[in-house]
Write a protein that binds this DNA or RNA. Structure first.
Lengths: 159, 159
DNA sequence: TGGCTTGGTTGCATCAAGCAACTGATCTAC
DNA sequence: GTAGATCAGTTGCTTGATGCAACCAAGCCA
């Protein structure tokens, strides 16, 4: 992305995209939701260039979407956590995830399913549990291996 | 964006972003939902470079998100319409729009509101009508001027 | 005849992304 | 105690997508 802003557009979608519309940004948020909190974990799981990951993390912290916490000193090492603002991106991620699943399906079915933590029901594109009808939030859902998963799949937080 | 794909990521969010994650793509979808169907309308309303708009429109047509229909011959002139696949991006756009509104609010309140066409209730970040509770789709909602609107605002389709 | 409208395409300059190598600190193995 | 590994970046270089402006083509308008 040459510029990250959309000058002259007084539109809330454009405002959102100025913050999380850059290449990799939303995937980093998803990776953190998924439990990847450290630089190396994210770099490996995403295959992103290290300088770009560094720049994106800084920006996401500046925008109060991620929070950086030291887990050791000497040498200083940090983990990244989602703020409330970051967690509130969950509906958008779920909508995109379901859209991707619907229109670019895996041959054997989805590799991962997002399910309601309490009742195990599948989560639809609105973040609503198809079993119990509850409107869910980021912390109400987990990711489990789907029909198309390989054996290495592991149960994780949602998204 | 240097490359538009995310090689090695078997993730539905990444698959979605490979299609609509490029700069401008989602804003073009929004512009078409908004009623901007012609090249010039989109170019002016978005302020996007013409070559980039041309490339994005072609890609969105190739991906079956937009459909190009001739509205005259000699010289051939086209309008762009959303397919079902394109309309199904509405929940993602609504989620982003509400997130943008919540965390980068306009000083006088939102300039535009998305409301349920039938009952006039506001649409929340899940695309659910706050008044009647109905789960809405793209064609169930319209956009109306909000408290922060200037006088030139016009009632349009949603998003 | 010349200008206007519409929907692009082409050429060029700039800046972001990808890659690989390097840094700097600490921990571990031998 | 020296070499190597780990972790979290930073730096330098190359490539290529983006923004901008100019141009093109075909009809219409007066």
């Amino acid at each position: 992305m040459l510029r990250r802003d959309y000058p002259g557009l007084d539109c809330s979608v454009a405002k959102a995209l100025e913050v999380i519309g850059e290449r990799w940004s939303l995937l980093i948020v998803r990776a953190v939701m998924h439990g990847n909190r450290r630089f190396g974990e994210m770099q490996e799981s995403l295959g992103i260039a290290r300088n770009v990951l560094s720049a994106r993390l800084q920006r996401l912290v500046d925008e109060d979407i991620l929070e950086r916490r030291a887990y050791q000193e000497n040498p200083p090492r940090y983990e990244y956590f989602l703020t409330e603002k970051g967690l509130d991106l969950w509906p958008a991620l779920i909508a995109l995830l379901n859209w991707g699943d619907r229109y670019s399906p895996d041959p054997d079915g989805p590799r991962r399913l997002i399910v309601h933590k309490e009742c195990g029901g599948r989560v639809d594109d609105r973040g609503i549990c198809e079993a119990c009808g509850q409107v869910l939030h980021a912390r109400d859902a987990i990711q489990v291996p789907g029909p198309g998963a390989d054996k290495t799949a592991v149960v994780r937080e949602a998204v």
